[in-house]
């Protein structure tokens, strides 16, 4: 692209700005990852040497393993549930009038404007009132609500590119609605559905506030990390943090790659 806007010195300045902001963004994450491999129980420079001792300690800690399993369960179930609900809305909106789609979009995005603290305490009251109790299942129920708007954004972006002429052609050629769905609609929107599902998994893995108010004793990994921070800083927390980071950013990366591939 022609770029008449930048002289050499502005470009250097611009590059320095980008790098500075990115460095600030990633600095805390780098610190956690770096010290998770530190061979001595000290979180300071100079770096003494690499070791996997904190991972060894953490992965032999049954409490950490339990929390990891719960987070994984929550991620998978949140992904599946919000994927299915999102897919069913997406299908309902294929061929719907623009007005209907816009209205659904607005309704689906409303939860995004609510701070999660507000929703979390509402959900906690609700579970208490109806005697549902606090558990991992209760948390998953809330995670689906948190994930659905994002699932919906990804799916409706895919719908905007949907070529309805293909569907019409199929019907003209005598295809049943089921056949048209299986052979045309599904393959076309499947990458987006998978991308959205993985995104929901990333959101669930990272989610803290709703889990804090609804998980009860069934602590997920972020809740365990929080509880241990309150007990005092300990180098093994770096390993827990790194595992959590790899899971969330890995899933987010996977989702972005999938969605990018489709478009």
């Amino acid at each position: 692209m022609r770029n008449p806007m930048a002289t050499r010195s502005t470009r250097a300045l611009a590059r320095a700005y980008l790098i500075a902001v990115l460095a600030f963004l990633f600095a805390p994450l780098v610190v956690v990852v770096l010290f998770s491999f530190h061979s001595v129980p000290r979180m300071s420079l100079p770096f003494e040497g690499f070791s996997l001792r904190w991972y060894d300690e953490v992965l032999h800690d049954p409490v950490v393993i339990d929390a990891m399993m719960r987070s994984a369960t929550a991620a998978v179930l949140t992904g599946l549930l919000s994927g299915i609900l999102g897919l069913s809305i997406a299908l309902a909106l294929v061929g719907a009038r623009q007005r209907v789609r816009a209205a659904t979009m607005v309704a689906a995005l409303i939860p995004l404007t609510f701070p999660s603290l507000l929703y979390a305490i509402g959900l906690a009251i609700c579970y208490h009132y109806f005697d549902v109790g606090y558990s991992l299942k209760a948390t998953i129920g809330g995670h689906v609500i948190i994930a659905l708007p994002f699932v919906f954004i990804v799916l409706s972006a895919s719908l905007d590119r949907f070529r309805f002429s293909l569907l019409e052609a199929a019907f003209d050629l005598g295809a049943s609605p089921w056949l048209a769905f299986r052979k045309i609609t599904l393959p076309l929107i499947l990458p987006a559905v998978i991308g959205a599902t993985v995104l929901a998994m990333a959101l669930s893995t990272d989610e803290f506030v709703v889990a804090f108010f609804t998980a009860g004793q069934e602590k997920t990994l972020p809740l365990l990390l929080y509880a241990r921070i309150n007990q005092g800083l300990d180098p093994s927390l770096n390993a827990i943090g790194t595992i959590l980071l790899v899971a969330t950013t890995g899933l987010a990366w996977l989702s972005a790659v999938r969605t990018a591939k489709e478009s």
């Binding site: 805390p28 610190v31 990390l225 980071l245 969330t248 950013t249």
Partner: peptide, 17 residues
């Protein structure tokens, strides 16, 4: 991707820093 870079991990990291 950094949007998903761990809400609680970041708070922990700053405490650490």
């Amino acid at each position: 991707v950094s949007l998903f870079g761990g809400y609680i991990v970041r708070v922990y990291a700053w405490r650490n820093i």
